[in-house]
Computed example of a mutant assay.
Amino acid sequence: MTKNRIVLALIATLLLATGAVAYVIVAARRTAGAAPAGVVALDHTRGLLIRSTADGPGYGRLAVMSTSGSRTTTSLTCARVYYSGTNGVCLRPSKEAPGTFEVAVLDEHAGVRRTLPLNGVPSRARTSPSGKMVAWTVFVAGDSYNGGRFSTRSGILNTATKDVVATLETFHVTLDGKPYKKADINYWGITFTKDDNRFYATMSTAGKRYLVAGDIATKSVRTLHDNVECPSLSSDGTRLAYKKRVSSDPAHMWRLTVLDLATMTETPLAETRNVDDQAAWRDDRTVVYGVPRDARHSDVWAVPADGSGKPTIAVRDAESPASLR
Rank of each mutant, 00 (worst) to 15 (best):
V134K: 09
R29I: 11
Y83W: 03
R46H: 15
T159L: 03
F171Y: 08
M133Q: 13
Y23V: 14
S66A: 13
R273G: 12
A166K: 08
P122S: 09
T312G: 13
N274W: 01
L16C: 12
A110C: 02
D306V: 06
G60Q: 05
A270F: 07
E319Y: 05
T72A: 04
H297M: 08
H109V: 15
S298H: 07
V89A: 07
N197S: 10
P93G: 10
D43Q: 03
T312I: 13
T312W: 07
V7N: 13
N227R: 00
T257V: 05
G214Y: 00
T218K: 07
V39I: 13
V288A: 10
A79P: 01
I185A: 10
R255I: 03
G99S: 03
G33S: 07
D55H: 14
T257L: 00
Q278D: 05
C90N: 06
D176C: 11
V81L: 03
Y187F: 10
R30N: 14
T45F: 01
G120W: 00
V315S: 09
T45R: 00
D163G: 11
T53Y: 03
P250E: 08
G111E: 09
T115V: 07
V121M: 07
V103H: 04
V105H: 02
G19A: 07
D284T: 13
F101A: 11
D306M: 00
R316K: 14
A302N: 10
T263K: 00
D284I: 08
T86Q: 03
M203W: 01
V246L: 01
G60I: 08
G148C: 08
R92Y: 04
T238S: 13
Y83H: 09
L91F: 01
